[in-house]
Amino acid sequence: MTEEKKISREELLATGENIKAQYNFLVFITAVDYPERNVIGMVYHLRSLGNRDTLIIKIDLPREKPEIASVAGIWPAAEWHEREVFDLFGVNFLGHPDLRRILLPPDWEGSPLRKDYTKPGVIKRPETIK
């Protein structure tokens, strides 16, 4: 059974605490960019390992200042997923233990998976290479 829930970003932590006993398994966290609605949509895909139910939580964030509380304290698996979303979408996760770029080099500019990202003209060499 798959359930879908749309909540606001303020409700995320409270909802997470409520459902974490049942939906104990975080499958993934990702984001989808909707420039025409001026929204970055967060997607939390959760699963209950007990009865195999799926819960998808969706949260819309404003594109200019996408900020949301980190759920790494509720589901530790979120740590890397949130770093990836931060890396590729530029979403800021408040209270994340170690928010750094994960796939791209640390000095990369921009958020490649946003729809308005254009390919960089010249890719900078990492500073370590002389």
Binding site: F25, L26, V27, F28, L49, W75, A77
Partner: peptide
């Protein structure tokens, strides 16, 4: 441990 394994997905 099992609980860790679940928590880390």
């Amino acid at each position: 441990k099992a609980d860790k394994a679940i928590a880390y997905g």
